[in-house]
Design a protein around this nucleic acid. Structure first.
Lengths: 109, 109
DNA sequence: TATATTTGCAAGCAATTACTTGCGTATTAA
DNA sequence: TTAATACGCAAGTAATTGCTTGCAAATATA
């Protein structure tokens, strides 16, 4: 079943949970309240996220505290890197063009 | 069925196809040859990627030419941005600490 | 101690995924 | 014109997803 970061962010509810954890760690029901589905559905997403290694869960009394494993998300950025090089390359070409246009006197255009 | 970029990169074969298209555009069978599965399986992944909007397919004779829609992948980077701020924030704190340690004479440590 | 709160587990379900095999249809080359 | 190549479509399958309802267990509160 080998779940990874890429599986973690494939679902909009799970992306939303992760985003929600950027501001503060939260327990299961606090997270569940934010979604229009049963507590159990959200609970399963949380379990899934844990199996992906993107969050950790710490038991505190009867509550379970969820917090982000932020460095796990760097794997996505790492994978994205060669693509990022491509699109920033394009932006640079556009920048170059714009610079050229700006440096020329209007008469020449 | 509403597929998006996040669905596109959720599968390792599809990630591999995308990576393969960074160097050059390729037709279906050329891509299929790279994987240890049937041509048809790869063909379905390609169709899936197209539906996600991350590649475009142009018919050229009897071949179908696949090329990256690179700007679509920026959506992932955009989503990742608040998280990136978090982990670079941490790196900065570490940098600060390292700077402090380096600026102090060894005796003080 | 009785009750409320927080949570996981189990079972069930329809839809989707990640493949497969077999076949049909363009397009190109012999 | 015949044969090879490049490809999609259809149907079938086992596993996974994304959800539900119902129940049980642990912990906290009255």
């Amino acid at each position: 079943m080998n779940r990874d970061v890429f599986n973690a962010i494939a679902d909009p509810t799970r992306r939303s949970i992760l985003m929600s954890l950027t501001s503060e760690s939260q327990h299961v029901n606090a997270l569940a309240d934010k979604f229009d589905m049963t507590r159990q559905a959200v609970s399963l997403h949380i379990k899934y996220l844990q199996e992906c290694g993107v969050i950790t869960i710490k038991k505190e009394g009867r509550e379970r505290h969820c917090s982000l494993e932020i460095q796990k998300l760097t794997e996505i950025a790492d994978w994205l890197e060669p693509f990022r090089k491509m699109w920033t390359g394009k932006f640079n070409q556009l920048d170059t063009l714009l610079d050229e246009l700006q440096s020329k006197p209007k008469k020449e255009l």
